[in-house]
């Protein structure tokens, strides 16, 4: 059990931004870069990963007391690979087009560091409710990240969002965006942008803190001056 219990809401919410798998933890980079040539692809990959994340989390957290420590990684891997195979088979049967697009990157969810990382780092130490919330949060965070990245690359690389043309024909599509190089560049720039925002937030907070502190000091000195004045008076 974790020594400090946080609220259920935080357990879910942390995956969205504070511990976003892509932008904060830099986990699961292979699919992040590989399949995000378009919004729908990013979304589908995100959902598939979330499914595996959620269910392997449930199984692992309910089995956590049964699995001997020495073989836990092997056991986790089998559980994860089983759910990945289920996703793969179901997608092939029900969404053949999407399955073709994502191709070998669905099975590669098995080695997505995010999933094993959550299994080992979270589900094996927490109860089912918390594992579900954590899995959902991380999954949603991951999906949002993938969809944004896919969306940006799709707009600039094919002029469309989810297949709908949004940029005029006069806009020459940036082919580089849907090529591998574009994936690295877009993600790198997004990371930078996020850091920029964070840095600004931090400096703003520091400034606010400073101002608050100054105001406090001022107040204190004023009150002490008043005290002095009272005493002298």
């Amino acid at each position: 059990m974790m020594s400090k219990q946080v609220s259920y809401w935080t357990e879910f919410y942390k995956g969205l931004y504070d511990q976003n798998p892509i932008f904060r933890q830099v986990l699961g980079m292979c699919p992040t870069l590989a399949v995000t040539v378009s919004g729908p692809n990013g979304l589908a990959m995100g959902l598939a990963t979330s499914f595996v994340l959620l269910f392997s989390g449930i199984v692992i957290s309910s089995l956590k007391n049964l699995i001997p420590k020495q073989v836990r990684i092997a056991a986790y891997i089998v559980v994860i690979a089983t759910f990945v195979t289920i996703v793969d088979i179901v997608m092939k049967a029900k969404f053949p087009e999407m399955s073709k697009d994502l191709g070998p990157f669905i099975p590669l969810i098995v080695v997505n560091c995010l999933i094993l990382g959550r299994a080992e780092g979270f589900s094996s130490k927490n109860n089912i409710t918390r594992s579900v919330l954590d899995g959902l949060g991380m999954g949603v965070g991951f999906t949002i990240g993938l969809t944004i990245l896919g969306g940006i690359r799709e707009i600039l690389g094919s002029r469309t969002i989810f297949g709908l043309q949004v940029l005029p024909d006069a806009f020459e599509p940036w082919v580089i965006m849907i090529l591998p190089a574009g994936a690295f560049l877009t993600l790198g720039l997004l990371f930078g942008l996020l850091n920029f925002v964070e840095l600004k937030k931090k400096t703003k907070k520091i400034k606010e803190d400073q101002q608050r502190a100054l105001a406090e000091i001022k107040k204190l000195t004023e009150s002490s001056e008043e005290d002095l004045a009272v005493k002298e008076g």
């Binding site: 830099v26 580089i176 090529l179 591998p180 190089a181 574009g182 994936a183 690295f184 560049l185 993600l187 790198g188 720039l189 990371f191 930078g192 942008l193 850091n195 920029f196 840095l199």
Partner: peptide, 18 residues
């Protein structure tokens, strides 16, 4: 400062991929 670490590595990788 904002690009130190991961971001600049990704951008360098992008150029390498090109």
């Amino acid at each position: 400062a904002q690009f130190k670490g991961v971001p600049i590595t990704l951008i360098a990788a992008g150029i390498l991929a090109m």
